[in-house]
């Protein structure tokens, strides 16, 4: 059984209840179709059990397979610098089929980000290092594809691309 090697910390992007007994970490790739499938399931889980879960999203972009994965991850992180990580995260997954530098810039405008700041952050070494750090932590935790979920530090093996299989975690 694979264990999460990087503990959830302040630097993570989280949704839900910080004191929840269940902490769900997803390693995801914005251009991975399976992550796109999982996206509404996570939202539904949070709608139904938001008080009982803390959800964490970490980046695992497979750049050679998904040419827009890294720039999307950086765009979400750059939006995060302006307090809009989840807004960008959602917008990217909602428009997963047409990700490009142009569309990401357009999303940033739609979110009314400070565009000069966004462009600077989007290319910053600091955010690149953060995304690469997510990736390396995932690899060392045994992430072998996306999405990979960890529930309270243990790899969650029951997820089978349906909401019901994800919701089973509430009964563990």
């Amino acid at each position: 059984m694979a264990h999460l090697k990087t503990a959830v910390s302040k630097g993570d992007h989280t949704l839900g209840n910080p004191n929840a007994a269940k902490v769900l970490v997803e390693y995801g790739d914005y251009q991975c179709p399976h992550c796109g499938v999982a996206f509404p399931f996570i939202n539904r889980l949070l709608d139904n059990y938001g008080d009982e879960i803390l959800f964490v999203f970490r980046n695992f972009p497979l750049q050679e397979s998904h040419p827009a994965a890294m720039m999307s991850a950086l765009a979400a992180e750059a939006a995060g610098q302006q307090g809009k990580f989840w807004e960008m995260h959602d917008m990217i997954f909602e428009h997963q089929a047409k990700l490009s530098a142009d569309t990401l810039l357009h999303f940033a405008e739609k979110l009314q980000l400070d565009m000069q700041q966004f462009s600077q952050d989007w290319r910053s070494q600091e955010l690149m290092s953060k995304v690469e750090g997510d990736f390396e932590g995932g690899l060392r935790s045994g992430v072998n594809g996306t999405p990979t979920f960890f529930l309270n530090g243990e790899r969650y093996e029951k997820y089978a691309s349906t909401y019901e299989s994800l919701e089973l975690m509430m009964r563990d």
């Binding site: 694979a2 690899l139 060392r140 935790s141 045994g142 072998n144």
Partner: peptide, 9 residues
């Protein structure tokens, strides 16, 4: 898929 963690360790 055995992943990369064993190799890296």
């Amino acid at each position: 898929n055995p992943g990369a963690d064993g190799i890296l360790d």
